[in-house]
Structures are given as C-alpha cells and as structure tokens.
Amino acid sequence: MIQAIPQGDGTVVLQSDGGAVRVDQNCRLVEQPAYTFFPCPFFPNVQSFQGILITPQGATPINSPFQFVYFDTDEFDQDGEINEPGYFSHSSGSALFVAYRPDGLIKFAGYIVQTRESAYRYVFFYQPQ
C-alpha cells in the first residue's frame, strides 16, 4: 500500500514498504527533478519526461522516457473517444501509458507485458472526486 503524506510546503511524500519519495505539485521528484512520478494527474504540457514507478517494493526508474502521444485508438478504455492526450513509454518486453481528461486529471493508466507466449494488458481507470 502506498500512502500520500502532505508536507505543508506544497510537496507530498509517497511512502511504501520499500521506501519513500517526495514529489512537488507537478509530480516531479524533489530530490531528482528529472524524474516524474507515474502515473500522475497533471496536464501533459511537456513532450517527454523520465518516469519513476512506485510500488510496495520501492521506487523504480522507468528505463525508457515517456513521449507525448494522442491515443488514436479506443482500445484501452472503450468509451468512444479517440485522440486522447497522454504519454507512452516502451522498452523491450513492456510498455506503460497514461491518458488525461480535458481538465488535466488522469483518465486511465496501465501497462503491457510481453512474454514469449502471451501479452498481458492491465488498464486502471480513475474517477475524479
């Protein structure tokens, strides 16, 4: 389980069993500003960024940078909308992706893992509150 702990200075500590990282309001790591927490609800206003994935095992840098894309297919969330803005990162055997709503909040995120026998796709949907 990952906990988000506001620090009162505009930053948030994301804590898991494997450690903790501190991010600013744009989801960049405070100690390593070249890295951005994935997934993160911010409007995609840059063409690429280096991502970091936080799991119960700790913070893991994503080897391939995220590139800005428009998802020209509706295969991920099947809601009838295409050309949704987001980011995509692809490395050998896996891919990560995230898409945003018009208001800048995250819409869905997920990953694809390719093995010799099969491909597995996991998509996580986010509801604004």
Rank of each mutant, 00 (worst) to 15 (best):
Q67R: 15
T115E: 01
R101Y: 06
Y126T: 13
D79F: 11
E81I: 08
G8M: 03
A99K: 05
G58N: 04
T55F: 00
A119R: 14
F108V: 02
Q114V: 14
P128M: 02
V12A: 02
G86M: 01
Q57P: 03
T36K: 13
I5E: 08
V23L: 10
Y126S: 11
E31V: 03
F97E: 01
V123R: 02
V113P: 01
P85Q: 12
V98W: 10
S92Q: 15
I54D: 08
I54Y: 04
P56D: 08
Q7C: 07
Q7T: 04
S92E: 13
S91Q: 15
S48D: 10
F71M: 12
E31A: 14
S48I: 02
Q32G: 03
V23H: 09
Q15P: 02
Q7S: 09
R101C: 03
F38A: 01
F68N: 11
D24P: 12
F68W: 10
V123I: 06
D24E: 11
P6C: 07
F42S: 15
Q78T: 13
Q15R: 15
G110W: 00
G19H: 13
D79N: 15
D74M: 13
A99I: 03
F38E: 01
F49M: 08
Q7A: 13
R28L: 09
R121Q: 09
F42T: 15
P33G: 07
V12T: 08
D9M: 06
F88I: 02
F66N: 09
Q129H: 03
F66I: 09
Y126E: 07
K107Q: 04
Y120P: 02
A99R: 12
I82L: 12
T55N: 06
